[in-house]
């Protein structure tokens, strides 16, 4: 069974991304006049089954957010394909995309920048209904109130403006907006990173409850391993635009395989059930403009050998249901 190269199971998956690449132009090189590009997402494949949560974890700048935005087509990939609910949405445009978007929503990291300061809360929450002609006027107001109550806000919140609320409450408003259209997929892009720890737990539990109630799938992006472990069914670990390891959450946390995952887990106190010594990585994360050749991680890896700098390891099945991109597994 083991040994095969990772191929996302597109059948039955709600979201399947295959070999997705995305680069952003930075500036022209002073000497050659060539465009310098950040390779934000560098050949990523992943799937999210219906009603489940895929946790996407990695350091700042590893491409998590870009990947999340590509997943719901707020950005278009340079190459690769995205299938959502049986349809290819990679190059979808215009009215078809607009209608498809009802099924995929997003919760943002920054609860301040994500709510329009000039709109009342009920108009923020109900914008999707209005745009898709599902509710307006009094009906929109009432539905918005019910939804706000469901996410733990007072019903009167609808008539107020976002700045009257705290970060945690604003995040609840953002969640209400995301679930208003009963989507099948919600991308949660670091939804609790900007919140106090006490509020984080409330928001995470709310997200879990809503998932059970509405049967949504989450693509949950976070740099916080404890959060990821709490919410995910499966995890994908990213480093410099590539997936280093992916597998079921319990397996991955019990026995991390990839050296990068191992060093990440060893950095979190009391995590990783197998007691291990703290692995301290040396050096900085390399620039995504000029990522190192071969394995992206070899410059900081404690297991690196000569071939790591030459050949980029593919994501292969190294144990049943567990995939890692490393030559030595």
């Amino acid at each position: 069974m083991t040994g095969g190269i990772y191929r996302p199971e597109t059948d039955g998956a709600l979201l399947a991304m295959v070999n997705v690449y995305k680069t952003f132009p930075v500036r022209k090189s002073f000497f050659s006049g060539e465009d310098l590009r950040v390779r934000a997402v560098d050949g990523v494949s992943l799937t999210v089954p219906p009603g489940k949560t895929l946790g996407l974890v990695g350091e700042s700048g590893c491409g998590k957010t870009t990947l999340a935005r590509i997943a719901i087509r707020l950005l278009a990939p340079d190459s690769g394909s995205i299938r959502f609910d049986g349809n290819d949405i990679t190059r979808m445009e215009g009215e078809v995309l607009r209608v498809t978007r009802r099924q995929m929503q997003i919760v943002f990291q920054d609860p301040y920048s994500s709510l329009n300061p000039r709109m009342k809360v009920r108009d923020i929450v109900g914008e999707g209904w209005l745009v898709h002609g599902l509710a307006r006027g009094k009906e929109l107001r009432e539905r918005a109130e019910r939804l706000l109550v469901r996410v733990g806000m007072p019903a009167e919140a609808g008539g107020k403006y976002p700045h009257e609320f705290s970060g945690g409450q604003r995040q609840r408003i953002g969640i209400a907006r995301a679930i208003a259209l009963s989507p099948k997929l919600v991308v949660a892009d670091e939804p609790v990173s900007a919140l106090d720890v006490s509020v984080q737990a409330q928001i995470l539990n709310l997200l879990k409850d809503l998932q059970e109630e509405y049967g949504m799938a989450y693509l949950f992006v976070s740099h916080d391993l404890r959060v990821i472990r709490h919410v995910s069914d499966a995890v994908a670990v990213m480093y410099l635009g590539k997936v280093m390891e992916t597998g079921p959450v319990e397996d991955l946390f019990r026995e991390p395989l990839h050296p990068y995952t191992r060093s990440l887990l060893s950095a979190v106190p009391m995590l990783g059930d197998a007691p291990s010594e703290r692995i301290v990585l040396s050096g900085e994360i390399p620039s995504p403009i000029a990522p190192p050749p071969g394995c992206r991680f070899h410059t900081r890896c404690f297991m690196a050998k000569k071939e790591c700098a030459e050949v980029c390891p593919l994501l292969r099945e190294v144990a049943s249901g567990r995939f890692a991109a490393c030559h030595f597994l």
Binding site: R69, I72, L74, R98, V99, R101, R102, M104, Q105, I106, F108, Q109, D110, S113, S114, L115, N116, I124, E127, G128, V131, H132, G174, R177, L181
Partner: peptide
């Protein structure tokens, strides 16, 4: 570039 514009897009606003 603000998130609320991205959110409006995701909601299906033109």
């Amino acid at each position: 570039e603000r998130d609320f514009v991205a959110a409006a897009r995701a909601q299906g606003a033109g």
